[in-house]
């Protein structure tokens, strides 16, 4: 059962990622990325990370990607054109990435001592997760909240119309 689920959702993941590259229109790419993220959530569930699976859906698929779709809709971003730069990038980029992937893959295939995952494995409960997060890693957690606050302020400052226009408006 685990094997079947893994094959289905790993396939969906790869198909979505490939579709992201091949689609011309950004909104199709965004939706294929949503497919990748939701199938990754299922894979997290298979690995016993319940809370992360839910967070993956809520944060990535439900918030970040909605923001992307929203911006694409707002700017009415059209299809992209092929340019000289993109042809050069294809010519150099593909072989380079293929080499990187081949190196990582050989290391991983040869790797010994890695276990296996099956459905009967234990599940990390939300309680365990929060115990570690709020006891041992409390400081990093608080720091990330400051990061989020700065990001909010930065986003507001950047997306607001420029000062010159605002004063002209007054």
């Amino acid at each position: 059962m685990h094997l079947i689920l893994f094959i289905i959702f790993a396939g969906l993941c790869l198909a979505g990622a490939l579709n992201l590259l091949l689609q011309k229109h950004p909104i199709n790419s965004a939706l294929s990325l949503v497919v990748v993220m939701t199938s990754l959530a299922v894979l997290y569930l298979l690995l016993g990370a319940e809370f992360l699976a839910a967070a993956q859906i809520i944060v990535y698929a439900g918030a970040i990607m909605v923001l992307f779709t929203f911006v694409i809709m707002l700017l009415n971003a059209g299809r992209e054109e092929r340019t000289l730069g993109s042809r050069a990038a294809i010519a150099v980029g593909f072989p380079a990435v293929a080499v990187i992937l081949a190196v990582i893959a050989t290391v991983l295939v040869k790797a010994q001592g890695l276990g296996a995952a099956s459905l009967s494995d234990g599940v990390t409960s939300t309680e365990d997760l929060s115990r570690v997060l709020f006891h041992e890693l409390l400081l990093p957690f608080e720091v990330t909240s400051v990061l989020i606050l700065i990001a909010i302020l930065g986003a507001v400052a950047l997306a607001r119309k420029g000062h010159g226009e605002q004063e002209a408006g007054k």
Partner: peptide
């Protein structure tokens, strides 16, 4: 069959997704 999946496969998938991300970063122009 409650057949188990070796963790290498998960790591391979992760490497593949990462490489596809790099490819996208390089070849897309939007």
């Amino acid at each position: 069959n409650m057949q188990a999946v070796p963790l290498n496969w998960y790591l391979l998938l992760s490497a593949a997704l990462f490489s596809l991300g790099i490819v996208g970063f390089l070849i897309r122009r939007n």
